[in-house]
């Protein structure tokens, strides 16, 4: 029973990683850049939703919607102001710019909301009790898993069926050829950032609801973990990001319970290294040649 509860909290944590990793992987697929600022968009999403709920006293759904809108706009702004001028620059220059954006977001949050951790009010409270109360599953972890699966399916359908999704895939394959086919590459990249940032805000709300403290640096570790998850599953692949995220969450949760709390992150990273040594393109990297 104990094992089962660790497993469930692992799946729930993994779902959050998966949502973040989906954004990471889409941006990587199309812009071929490691967007280190992605984790900080999560934090912004957390703060915006918290402020809407507590300071403005608006209902939860408004908070979620507002956080998504703010993060989407933020994502488009970041892309347009910082990354667009570097479209043809070497990838390392873009990486450093992404780090600059990450510092910028963290320090802006520090100035606006202060360094003290704030207590987050979960979007849903309570838990289901199973097996005479031996196993309790919080509603928020159920919600997290459901949201993650829905997003994964929606994204898969979007990229394979819709016109914009197809344009995104075309851009990630070959930008020049896509442009010749009449696809607006800049618009498509902006859209990818918009979707990625919207997902990040959802992840931020779910993460803060499960682990209810919020600081300007809240997003950085989940950001790195999600990046790991995306690489773990094969970066650029949507099912890979999902699988990588869930596995990473389970490994982390079980390692925390059975090996050592302090070394849980190390176990996660060690598994990543072993997987990459055996399969250098990640778990699903090889079988999914299309990049989105």
């Amino acid at each position: 029973m104990e094992f089962l509860s660790y497993l469930i909290s692992g799946i729930s944590l993994g779902s959050v990683y998966a949502i973040i990793a989906l954004g990471y992987t889409m941006v990587y697929g199309i812009a071929k850049m490691l967007n280190f600022a992605h984790g900080d968009v999560i934090m912004v999403g957390g703060y915006v939703s918290l402020l809407t709920m507590t300071s403005l006293g608006l209902p939860v759904w408004v908070a979620i919607l507002l956080a998504m809108v703010v993060c989407t706009i933020l994502g488009i702004l970041i892309e347009g102001l910082a990354y667009k001028p570097l479209r043809s620059a070497p990838s390392l220059a873009v990486l450093i710019t992404a780090i600059g954006v990450s510092y910028f977001l963290q320090n802006s949050a520090l100035l606006i909301w202060g360094a003290n951790p704030q207590v987050y009010t979960p979007v849903i409270e309570g838990a289901v009790k199973l097996f005479d109360g031996q196993l309790s599953i919080t509603y928020i972890s159920i919600l997290t898993v459901v949201v993650c699966v829905v997003i994964m399916i929606a994204l898969t359908i979007f990229t394979s069926k819709s016109k914009m999704g197809k344009a995104m895939r075309a851009c990630s394959e070959d930008k020049a050829a896509a442009q010749l086919m009449g696809i607006n590459v800049n618009k498509t990249i902006s859209l990818t950032f918009a979707i990625g940032s919207a997902l990040a805000s959802v992840a931020g709300i779910l993460l803060c609801s499960s682990y209810p403290t919020l600081m300007p640096t809240t997003g950085s570790m989940p950001g790195i973990k999600a990046f790991t998850a995306a690489v773990f599953g094969g970066i650029g692949s949507i099912p890979g990001a999902f699988l990588g995220g869930i596995l990473l969450g389970i490994i982390e949760s079980l390692a925390k319970a059975y090996i050592s709390t302090q070394l849980a992150n190390s176990v996660v990273f060690a598994v990543l290294i072993i997987v990459l040594l055996v399969r250098p393109a990640g778990l699903l990297g090889k079988y999914v040649p299309e990049k989105v």
Partner: peptide, 21 residues
């Protein structure tokens, strides 16, 4: 003072954009 790291980040981004322009 408090704006130090914020300015640092902005300088970072601007320099990166400038040297690749």
């Amino acid at each position: 003072a408090d704006y130090r790291m914020l300015i640092y980040a902005i300088i970072l981004i601007l320099v990166m954009i400038a040297i690749n322009n």
